[in-house]
Design a protein around this nucleic acid. Structure first.
Length: 405
RNA sequence: GGGUCUGUACCCAAGUGGCCAAAGGGGACUGGCUGUAAACCAGUUGCGCAAGCUUCGGAGGUUCGAAUCCUCCCGGGCCCA
């Protein structure tokens, strides 16, 4: 068992805020397993590399003998966390939330330790949905408008004349209540959660509990290199995506983002990360090779050793050598559809969104049959032409036609 | 409650009776270059094979003709109370 100092060093490595360091030390000092809370709003169906950062931190706590308390925000998801939003987000239906919650737990198992005693998974609807008006008034009386409006994004929206639903203002309070409910010793979150997590401390203190320590992890930018990685922006790499998909996505990140990805997405020890970054910056490691290494590492992390190399081979075959992917989704098309305009066939196979878009893509030289570029935008094809043949739109969309009687 | 402004395609935003499927920018997409990076260049960006159809918060109305005018409704900002 590592000493308190060693634990402290491991746990605060790679974090941005630690409120408060002395409290963390004394909690670790107590020697008891600490309850480490992480809230997760089931607003989307995929867990991505950005969220994996904080999950990995939580795993470190588990490995040191502490208990992960995963709070599924099935209630709060219906309010919608306003964090980082410039607009009110539409509330999700109970069904959507439920569906997401299930897939989350499934995905999280790739990172967290689910051994008995190591983790508790709870849902905040269990207590939040029970609250009546008296409870809510009591809760809201614990803070002030001025305090809530200190939050950066509220303030910005308010100043900009953008609408803020009253319910959104309650969000930090609800999340804070979770901390009271689960008696959290520590709460983890991205830096965008700092305000919410501090609210937990305030509420715990008011409830006579020892306030939780708040640790925040950096936010990871998405593939565009600008906005934080998020499902809604579509700039993410999902941890359950197929290896080749992950590999390709990582190859497309801006060069400048590589150090951050090495640091936050590889699961490497700090020494290895800094050595790699140094080699990259000094020119000893060419950028392409660095990125390939990064992509392989991430794929290995989620698909097992060797998967990264396979993904890279596939990548080289398809994109470097302009070849054909090893696995192409089959598109079954009824024989009665033929003869058919190629543009229509493309949309039948979901390679494009409409016949019209299909026609455009052909005009733009982006469509190939068996690797041969199609030049006639109005071309008609027959079942015999197409059966068993591959269709390609752009660099990434593929389908193999299978004609069914 | 009163006043006033406002709601346009993924986002911002022009348009105020026909020349509007709707300027411009961003984003996205396709092609070129390349390292599926960045930068840059060219193009595309409602649906339909087409005639044409549907779209400018919603529902009605005026008109040969409406995103543009009128009525009501819904949503939002600001000021006053």
């Amino acid at each position: 068992m590592p000493t308190v100092d060693e634990q402290f060093a491991i746990l605060t490595a790679g974090t941005v805020d630690c409120i408060a360091a002395t409290e963390l030390r004394s909690k670790l000092d107590s020697g008891r397993p600490l309850r480490v809370k992480l809230g997760i709003d089931p607003t989307a169906s995929d867990i991505h590399l950005g969220f994996a950062v904080v999950l990995r931190k939580l795993r470190q706590f588990q490995d040191l003998g502490h208990v992960a308390v995963l709070v599924i925000g099935d209630f709060t998801a219906r309010v919608g966390d306003p964090t980082g939003r410039s607009a009110t987000r539409p509330p999700l239906t109970a069904d959507q939330v439920e569906e997401h919650a299930l897939t989350y737990v499934d995905q999280v198992q790739r990172i967290l330790d689910f051994a008995p005693g190591r983790i508790e998974v709870v849902r905040n609807a269990d207590w939040l949905a029970q609250m009546d008006m008296a409870d809510i008034l009591k809760l809201t009386a614990r803070t002030t408008v001025a305090r809530i409006m200190e939050r950066d994004d509220f303030e910005k929206r308010f100043r900009g004349g953008d609408p803020i639903a009253l319910s959104e203002l309650l969000y930090p309070l609800l999340q804070g209540s979770d901390s009271v409910e689960v008696r959290a010793d520590i709460e983890l979150g991205g830096t965008d959660q700092l305000f919410n997590n501090l609210m937990g401390r305030q509420l715990q203190t008011a409830a006579g509990q020892d306030p939780q320590v708040v640790l925040t992890t950096p936010l990871l930018e998405g593939l565009d290199g600008v906005a934080k990685m998020s499902k809604s922006l579509g700039n993410y790499v999902g941890i359950t995506e197929p290896g080749p998909e992950q590999f390709g996505k990582i190859m497309s990140i801006p060069d400048g983002l590589m150090p951050k990805y090495f640091e936050l997405a590889t699961g490497w020890l700090p020494g290895q990360v800094s050595a790699t970054i140094e080699a990259l910056l000094s020119g000893d490691l060419p950028p392409v090779e660095a990125k390939r290494l990064l992509a392989r590492t991430v794929v290995d992390l989620y698909h097992g050793d060797g998967a990264g190399q396979n993904a890279q081979d596939e990548f080289d075959r398809v994109f470097k050598d302009r070849g054909t992917p090893s696995e192409i989704p089959i598109c079954e098309v009824s024989e009665t559809l033929f003869p058919v305009r190629l543009a229509r066939l493309l949309s039948e196979c979901s390679l494009v969104e409409s016949n019209r878009e299909g026609k455009r893509k052909i005009e733009q030289g982006g469509v190939r049959i068996e690797g041969t570029k199609v030049t006639d935008a109005d071309i008609e094809v027959t079942a015999k032409d197409m059966d068993g043949k591959t269709l390609q739109v752009g660099k990434r969309a593929w389908a193999r036609i299978s004609v069914t009687p």
